[in-house]
Structure formats: structure tokens, C-alpha cells
Design a protein around this nucleic acid. Sequence first.
DNA 1: AATTTAATTGCAAATAATTATCAATAGCAT
DNA 2: ATGCTATTGATAATTATTTGCAATTAAATT
Lengths: 129, 129
Amino acid sequence: MQELKKNRNTLQRRIVLETVQNMTNHPDADTVYEKISKEHPLVSKATVYRNLKILAKQGLILHIPMLDGADCFDFNCLPHYHIKCRKCGGVFDVDLPYQKDICSKINRKRGFIIESHQIVFSGVCPDCQ
Amino acid sequence: MQELKKNRNTLQRRIVLETVQNMTNHPDADTVYEKISKEHPLVSKATVYRNLKILAKQGLILHIPMLDGADCFDFNCLPHYHIKCRKCGGVFDVDLPYQKDICSKINRKRGFIIESHQIVFSGVCPDCQ
DNA sequence: AATTTAATTGCAAATAATTATCAATAGCAT
DNA sequence: ATGCTATTGATAATTATTTGCAATTAAATT
């Protein structure tokens, strides 16, 4: 059976969640840590990494594994796609509707159980042009 | 002006290219290195990494940055999508037609210059079910 | 409220994947 | 053959993240 472990509502976890929810620009773990450590130098980097992971598993934030470089996190938990600027490295939302049916197509064809998909675009943002 | 540098046809580069072309299962850089070092212990790991990058830039192999873990490489250079099994970690081709028009849609909307896109599915392969 | 318990923390060290450094080597054009 | 410079090997450095572990602390159980 699955060992279920219950989450605790620690000060550090609340700080991490609140910080991500106040950052609208898809920060990576280290950026979240930098932001936090200015106001709460007591919080360690490992704790930030651990809590980002836990919060993402709880569904309170969205974990976006990037195609290159550091993974980033998003306060917006609705599934959506992203574009990464190859010049500034910034990650932005893409207003392409979520392709709900794209998985089932392949599912039938190949015998895979498909659980999720990511689309990451690469290009240059307006500011960097 | 662009400094153009001419590639040399070294023994090591030939070995790396040939090895990737004989591996049909989307190996990552380290796996390519392991394979090579059995038959050619003289080739260093850095050289394998460097040549994989150069060969991908030359268009002789395809570089697939993965959403998690190590990037992998593909002898099949035609653009196509992949699925990664979350149990065995294997990467497989997906027979979804390449979405040529998906970029231009967003292009118009947002002012981005979109250069490429990746779709990576996640799930469980037939063998791991 | 006191006690038990197990999740969580901080710190440092470990890991994984890749890149940089740099002197030595070796393709290739002349 | 000579010279230029891309490339190599070995190792150190970097980047992003995870882990080990003793100490701490939130929450369940007396």
C-alpha cells in the first residue's frame, strides 16, 4: 500500500508559497531562494528546493521543467504552455489553448499511457528584438 | 561579420557520429560516451560532449533537450516529437505529425519571434505497464 | 497539557550533467 | 613540408539540485 505522509504547515513552507504567488515572472528555484533570503535569511536553500517540490505535488504551484537550464515555477496552476526567450532567458505564458485531445490520439496508436505533455516554444521576446 | 569556423574531420568526430547513427534508442551524452569508450578508450568524455554539440549544430544528428534529466540525441534529423517513460526513462518517437503552423499562430498574437518548439509527452511505455 | 511521532529543517557534502581551461596535438590549405 | 588553428585529453569548475543526518518542531495521541 501507499505510505501516505501528511504535510505540515511550517513557517518556511508558508513563506515559499507566498513568495511564488507574489512572483508573476516564472522564477526558478534559485530566484525564489534569493528573494526569500533577503527578508528571511534563516531559510536555507535546500528548504526552498524541497518546499517548491512539495507545493507542486500538492498542486498549489505549477512546476515547469524547462528544456534547458533551470526548472521554473508558476503561481498559475491551470495547465498552459510557455515560451522561453533565447536572449534574456525569460519565460512567458503562451495563449495557445491547452490541447486536451492531443494525448488520446497517440494513446490509441501506440499503447502508451500518456499522462501529460509540455509544449515549450523557443524564440525572441519583443523586448529583445 | 560572422566568424565562420571550418570543421575538421577528426577520427573522434567520425566515431561519435557513427556511434549515434548506430544507436536507435535516443541515447544521452553519457550513454554515447560509455558505448564509445568500450571500443575506443582513448576518446575522452569532453570530446564526446563537444562533438555531439557540433554534430547537432551541423545538422548531422538531432539534439533533444529533455524536460528532465540529461539531454538526448537522435540519428533521425527530421523534426518530430518524443515521449519519455516515467518508469524506465526511455525516450521514444511519437508519430504525431509535426505542427508546422503552431508557431505562426502565436507569432501574430504576441510579437514574439518564434523559432522552434518542442512537445514532450510523459507517461508509461507498453513494456512498463 | 504533557508526551509521543514523524515530518521538516539547516548545514554541508554529494551528485549529475555539462562546460571551461589550457597545453599539446593534428587536420588541412598553401 | 610549413604554418595556422580547430581539436583533443585531462582535469577543474560550474550549474542545478539532492541527500545525509542530527536537531527541531508541527500535529497526533495520550
